[in-house]
Design a protein around this nucleic acid. Sequence first.
DNA 1: CGGATCGGTTGACGGCAGTCAATGACGTTA
DNA 2: TAACGTCATTGACTGCCGTCAACCGATCCG
Lengths: 260, 260
Amino acid sequence: MTDIATLPSKRVCGTCELRKGGDCRFAALSGVRVRHLAKGETLVHEGEMPERLFLLRRGYLRMLRFGCDGDRVVMALLAAGDVVPAFPGRALGFSVEAASDTEVCEISGAAFRAAFGRDTALRHRILDNAAAHLRRLQDAIWLRGRLTSRERVIAFLVQATECMPVDRLPDGSLRVTMRVSRGDWADMSDTTVETVSRVVRGLADEGLVETLARHRYRIPDIAGLRRLARLDPAGAEGAPGPAPWQVIGPRGDRSVVRHQ
Amino acid sequence: MTDIATLPSKRVCGTCELRKGGDCRFAALSGVRVRHLAKGETLVHEGEMPERLFLLRRGYLRMLRFGCDGDRVVMALLAAGDVVPAFPGRALGFSVEAASDTEVCEISGAAFRAAFGRDTALRHRILDNAAAHLRRLQDAIWLRGRLTSRERVIAFLVQATECMPVDRLPDGSLRVTMRVSRGDWADMSDTTVETVSRVVRGLADEGLVETLARHRYRIPDIAGLRRLARLDPAGAEGAPGPAPWQVIGPRGDRSVVRHQ
DNA sequence: CGGATCGGTTGACGGCAGTCAATGACGTTA
DNA sequence: TAACGTCATTGACTGCCGTCAACCGATCCG
């Protein structure tokens, strides 16, 4: 199912939505290959030393780690525009899987290294990317450490309204399409499908969420959900509130404006 | 209690153990200030945009985040030689506190930026540092997600034998000095002092740990502890085992050789 | 159509570990 | 020496949520 097409840079980038939107960090590079992955396929395995950089063009990837007995921990979800935080020449600390059908740009390590030595703007973008990922992993640790399972499940739903297809209904409520399965939802919340199911049930009973169709929900009061998940600072203390979920938005520093 | 001394680079670095050991990433830079912090003092607060880089010369720092109701999560412990993963011009996602008396080198953002544009080796060291921190945060997520409290407490003890003062006794057992309080131990293990106490008690009952003095322990069978904490791959599957704790060792890539 | 498979829901149960509280050990100060 | 603060220990209790199991609906397939 894997399809690799090597194309001259112009051809690939000229039609790419990311470039048009200014979300591509590598538009200046040549020798870019586009690779298609079906949902569930693995892009790279933990421990590998990939000699290239990966940029997600379309779809969702997950960064995860496997244990000896088959269990797994999902550490982050990547969306279109994100760069996999891997550095050519360093062993990877995680595997990367397609959480949906995806298109990934692969940039050769040689091309990257050459451009990195030459191009100041590119350097800053790379550092920014690393900083954004550091930030997101810190957020993940915070969420897992200080929030209950229920709160994390809600936090992921809130996050989905910020990085997944969403529209606003006439009555002001949000309609969001979760592009991940219940299993992924549970993985990202570091809990089980049963707990996710129970939490969604509970929210429905309280009128905070209405299930419209499989993976489609209506959310009348997003601020109420934020409060339930303790995503906003409760007191008026100067203390900064907990951070959002670990999905990396299209732009590396999107988090800065996320809660106003 | 804060004492800041600005010294010409030569003077500072000439006497620095880090430089002699080759652990200093900034020996080439000038305009370095040395700052002393007493245990408990804060180096930088979450949300600040420090216009400098911090390198830990001596002691231990902790990276942590505070919640609205006074609770806190410790994300990593830094040891001598580590660089605080902050980039000049970006808001910090965590506070940094002295976990013991420390000496920190401060490098001005301007000096750093100039050198960063000029010095290829420095660039690689900075990227390496970011990569090491990414790796450690991923490890932290893994530990918190897949290990029990008991296992995390043991994992931290094991880790201490790898980055804190330790010597080997005639009978082959290790004697380690924990340079952090019970509270820090609990913070780093994402649990409570009560649980740490109970775990240590349990280990003593099983003869796996003997308390010699406050903060000093004898460990007859370190491999046994590793097994208890599930730090080594159980099966002979190709699956890589869980990673060590999130203390960053003196060298950024020390983890590579950590378990052979 | 029957059966198999998969994703999701619901209920019952149990254990890990967090919380609360009392007590002890130790060092500091008056 | 007594009073006090800090740090650590131990016990009792409780509740969240992970695990197991049964069940349901949708889809696919021979």
